[in-house]
Design a protein around this nucleic acid. Structure first.
Lengths: 273, 273
DNA sequence: CGATTCCTTGAAGGTTGTCAACGTTGGTGG
DNA sequence: CCACCAACGTTGACAACCTTCAAGGAATCG
């Protein structure tokens, strides 16, 4: 623990960097995940129909925490315009409302996109309590950072790609997230967003979303019909989304280390052609 | 302090809502803030010139935490396009790199926009350590949520407003943030972003930013020249930004409760005409 | 003083939004 | 079972917004 011993190790750590140092942190985070899992395991489950708003139903307190067990949901913001912007889409396994400490009212702006089952941890100061334990705090921080990264990604996509690129990003994104949780195995998935929703998510009009989807279809890149997405040409989709070309030594980022999947093991979707 | 007395107060708390219940949490968070302040007080200060990238200079570890003491900085993302999207702008007083736990390398994508002074807390597992204390964890969570809210706001603005609206949002935003920290008192402030940066921040081209700025000037709404912003017609600026009209009982949101300002007291800018 | 970066302006063309109309689907009640 | 309705999807024409290309002016720094 002396200053000198740490310095002596510095160069070694430099070379090993992440793997070793992270491994102990990983264990701590995993403990946090297990703890939160256990909490949600015994939690009251709530069912919402498509179109219902979280917090409107049920006497939920302002700082409840949710975990989406099945179904999709989204968070939105409204402008006096009567426009609506969708800022995040939640998939099965996602946590919702971790920012609840700083809300005044119950979650008003989260919408069920399908029939949805949510586990709810209610309580007056639940977050404060959870943050009292280091491993929980680490896990919650990790979850908040994940959410931030999703938003940053969407923001980048919207502010620097055209409609085609944004659509490609979105389709790819859902694919990766679903795959990482073992919710799909092939390049097809059901996506309950309506074209209206897609427009609100990507900052486009319904009409234009429709046009671009058609062009993606006619170019045999991707297919969306009846809530079902099929990726036909992954490589071109990635190009459109502005992702870097794959080199031989490319290692896809591990995106979902700490979200429990149906099956443990690898967590990156097959990206090869 | 008995359970019954708290229950008896429940209905009263309902009416007062936030103030009372939050007050104890506020104290905890404030302890966290003081703790972090103290940490940064003794921290090494680093100086960067405009255009320099954080983490490039100095042997900073991957999970260092920064606090911007003076100057502006921004965080960006790059696309293979060779395009660049600015996803957040940091003002004096802001913390940078709290998501560092989950980075592999030192902060590469934060750029000094001016001459910048940053206090740095370096160390192998500094975040893990900080999260071990409840009040720190609460404060850090609060900071992460603030950052998320900024991003959400920007995202909403970009995805549902035209260029005029986005510019208005940005000008208003900086105004509010600077005002809340007592860094300005009037409706004028210096803003070191170049029009190129503004374009990258709002998803527009330089040329168009220039044109829209000109139109805002000729409509006597706002003025930007030589890194100096002057808000001429606050009410119209707010309308453009899509903010709700002010009603008589409108209470502006308190945005910056826990960031130390030059002076304690109120923290919402004057919004009246 | 040159060189670089930033700002400014015009003209042309592409992308996206608006408006309007119609087709399709799914649910509901007679 | 059919008629109806509402929500969603689809298509065309046109206008508005924004980008691209190009070139010149202004400011800043060595």
């Amino acid at each position: 623990m002396t200053k000198t011993s740490r310095c002596a190790l510095a160069s070694v750590q430099e070379m090993l960097t992440a793997p070793t140092r992270q491994s102990e942190m990983r264990l701590t985070i995993l403990r946090g995940r297990q703890h939160l899992e256990a909490r949600f395991g015994t939690a009251a489950a709530l069912t919402l129909r498509a179109g219902e708003v979280f917090g409107a139903a049920g006497g939920l307190r302002s700082d409840a925490i949710y975990r989406l067990q099945t179904g999709w949901a989204c968070q939105y913001r409204e402008l006096p315009n009567s426009r609506r912007a969708i800022i995040d889409v939640y998939l099965p396994g996602d946590f919702i409302g971790l920012d609840g400490l700083f809300r005044a009212r119950p979650l008003e702006n989260v919408l069920a996109l399908t029939l949805v089952e949510v586990a709810t941890i209610d309580g007056d100061k639940i977050l404060t309590e959870l943050l009292g334990c280091q491993s929980n705090a680490l896990y919650i921080t990790w979850l908040l950072v994940r959410r931030q990264q999703r938003t940053d990604h969407l923001l980048t996509s919207i502010s620097s790609l055209d409609a085609r690129g944004r659509l490609a990003t979105m389709l790819l994104d859902f694919y990766k997230r679903l795959y990482a949780r073992k919710l799909i195995a092939a390049r097809t998935y059901t996506m309950p967003l309506t074209q209206q929703h897609i427009g609100q998510y990507l900052g486009l009009t319904v009409v234009h979303v429709n046009r671009v989807l058609r062009s993606l279809r006619s170019d045999r890149i991707a297919l969306l019909e009846k809530n079902s997405v099929t990726i036909l040409d992954l490589e071109r989709l990635r190009q459109l989304a502005g992702e870097r070309e794959m080199s031989s030594n490319y290692r896809p980022p591990v995106v979902d280390q700490f979200t429990p999947a149906k099956d443990t093991g690898f967590s990156s979707p097959p990206m090869g052609s």
